[in-house]
Amino acid sequence: MNKQVVSIIQRDQLIRLMLKGERLDGRKPEETRTISIETGVIDKAEGSARVEIGDTKIIAGVKIQPGTPFPDTPDVGVIITSMELIPLASPEFESGPPREKAIELARVTDRGIRESGAIDLKKLCITEGEQVWMVFIDIHVLDDGGNLMDAASLGAIAALLTAKIPGERYGIGEDMPLPMRDIPVSVTAVDIGGGILFDPSIEEERVADCKLTVISNQEGAIAGMQKSGNGSLTVDQINHIVEVSCKKGQEIREKFLEI
């Protein structure tokens, strides 16, 4: 899954522990690491959040400004999500334009927000066909301790929930909060030799055969999924991950995100 060399001892240790239902950091297979979310960390941004999952750290910023809508959707606002895997966050990241890993993370984050209908994009229309609000979500990874996917999507939604549309600055009405309708939460699990571990650490990600991200919405339905990595999953494994992810998603939502 990852080009970084994994020591054989560590790999064996991980698998040995897994057979006993244990993990390197003492968690249970379904246990997630401690999450902390701090919003409003960047004053210049219309919305922002700093998220930590274990020692994974990301910062998400939302900028909102007027722009022209896409010709095929003249009456809805625009969301653009980007992800930067900057070299300060990991020895594996290099500077330069986003590569496939960053693109995948950004697109899956975007999919969760878009497909769950988290933002009422119709309400972002200023003048049909001419001007709409464009929402730019930019996520910077500060420290890659594994499971960037969940950190990114958590950061994005937390930043959106606190974002304000800067109407006054552009002379378009008053400042107002973004019209949010849903709170999608992403929960990722990895498959290591047939065992499923949730919220993988960087070591677990390196050893994993593949991972599956499930984004669930407020009503416990699935809004997005992505399998990533070379391995394969059985249908039973998929159904198990979906079930646990939806439950975990609900817990995270209740604890951190309900307004």
Binding site: A221, I222, A223, G224, M225, S232, I238
Partner: peptide, 19 residues
């Protein structure tokens, strides 16, 4: 042999519908 090697999803599905 029935193993899933690609899985993506967008939209709205209940876990039962997915099954």
């Amino acid at each position: 042999d029935g193993k899933i090697t690609l899985l993506q999803m967008d939209g709205h599905l209940t876990p039962e519908e997915l099954k």
